[in-house]
Structure formats: C-alpha cells, structure tokens
Write a protein that binds this DNA or RNA. Structure first.
Lengths: 140, 140
DNA sequence: CTGTATCCCATCCGATACTG
DNA sequence: CAGTATCGGATGGGATACAG
C-alpha cells in the first residue's frame, strides 16, 4: 500500500466562537474536501453518473490517468463509501464500478461545479489573459 | 514569480462523439477544476462570503495556511477574476479582498459542496472505519 | 482484464529571512 | 501590515514491470 489512508481527524466542529465553519487543518470537512480536491476523484465521480463502468472503460474515458492512479482513486472512493466495487469471478476478471446512494448525492453537487466551470470558462480565460498582459506590460 | 501561471489550454470542448464532457487533460474545465481543487482556494472562496477581509484576517482565520500560500492563492484567484484586491495607500498598508460577482456565483456552488461534506462526514467516517477494519482482519 | 510493486522525479508547500 | 525570495523536505503521481 501507499499514500497514507489513515491519520485520524478530530471530530468536533465549529467549537470556536461559531464563526462560519471549522477551518482547522484536521477537521473532518477538510479531510473530505482534500479527497474531492485530488487530481482524479472528482473526474471519476462525475463520470459515474447513473450507470456502472468497467475498469478499462474508465481508464479509456479519463484522458491521461495512469492505471496506478485509477486504482488508487477508486480504492479511496470505495473506502469513503462513495463507489461500489463489484467483482465478477470470471476469467478474464471483470470489475464494475458504480456510485453508491451516498455517491449519487455527491455527484449532483459535483455536477453543478462542473457545469459552473463550463459556463464560465470563457470569462476566466479572459480574466487570466488580461491579468497576464497587465503584469507583462506595467503602467510605466 | 513561481509555480507556473501559464501553460495554455486548448479551447474546443466535447469534440469527441458527444460523450458527456471533455475529460482531456488540457481542457479548460480541467484547468479550472484543478484550481478549485488546490489546497487552499476552496477555503478562501468559502470564507469570503459577502464581506471583504484583510490579508491578516484571512491568515488568522484559515488554520495552518502559511503567508506564502495565502499570497499565492489570492493572486491566482485574482487572476481568475474571482477575487478583487483593493490596496489602500496608507501606512501600514491595508489590503482588502472580496469576491467579484463571478466569484460570488462560484461561492454558492462551493458552499453546497461544503454543506454536503458537513452533512455526510459521519457516514464517510463510518464507511472508512468499516473498510479499514475489513482490510485489517481478512475473512480468514 | 484488473490489478500490485518499485522506482523516481516534478511540484507543492511550509519555514525562514528580508523589504517597503 | 502585506508582502517577496530562497531553500528544502514531503508527497503526489507517472512509467514500467510483473502477477493472478
């Protein structure tokens, strides 16, 4: 194994003076958000919409993912209870992945994030270009 | 400067056989999702709700962030047009950060992600514990 | 087909010191 | 107060080879 799957987080949340939400490093929320934020998890969840997919199918669909990282990512999502892994005892082996009910609820939220991104990508690209241009040619 | 701010992405999207959405590595969507997914951006946007905050105030509020990473993160968000940086020419300097209109629209989506996480953290923690227990004590 | 194990490098990012 | 510069350790993740 590799890439620590442990490191226990604390449990209490918002114990301070009720600011907004717990921003402490070891907070559960941060632990989970870090998972969402890794390079591939969000992609996998977004792809596993209402149907199940085989390992190779996922690998083909997600451009650039290595076999290793797909395995690691799927294991983490399975551990989190977001993805269900089904092994068919045939040869050659067949393994299907699908979202659990919990995973489906997350899918919706993630989908809205993807939609937001698609919708505003032009604005962001424009903003970046303007920012870079301004930095390259100071007012003088 | 540091940590590449360039690396131009391609523009077309979903040019394949109209699968779902472009999962290619250099897609705009991926570029932006990577930003969302970095260690601190999501935190900063979530925190900058309807009010502006000073640099030090952000630093105090976000547990564990270094001065360096707060600066880097804020610069990226400014470049993306999500955060507005206002410098007051006083001494000692005062710099306020607030969400742009674009940033506000993203804030809503991100907030729903944070809410999801808060709501389901117990389920996930339980799932993880069960997974780890099963792994530690195989069926035999 | 679906993994696991190993190697190894790119980058992320924290610590620290210095500046206007 | 609000940065910037530099260094160096940790870690994410790709390439490759091997296995059930």
């Amino acid at each position: 194994m590799e890439e620590g799957t442990s490191k226990e987080p604390s449990h209490s949340c918002c114990t301070e003076e009720a600011f907004q939400w717990d921003t402490r490093e070891d907070c559960d929320v941060r632990q989970i958000l870090d998972r969402i934020g890794d390079k591939w998890s969000l992609l996998v969840i977004a792809l596993l919409d209402d149907r199940s997919m085989r390992f190779t199918e996922l690998k083909r669909t997600i451009d650039g993912i290595s076999q290793r990282m797909l395995t690691v990512t799927l294991r983490q999502l399975e551990r989190d209870g977001l993805v269900l892994r089904t092994v068919y005892p045939v040869v050659p082996p067949r393994v299907d992945y699908e979202l659990t009910p919990l995973g489906v609820t997350l899918h919706d939220t993630i989908q809205s994030l993807v939609t937001w991104t698609e919708k505003h990508q032009t604005e962001i690209a424009t903003s970046r270009a303007r920012y870079d241009a301004a930095a390259a040619v100071p007012v003088v």
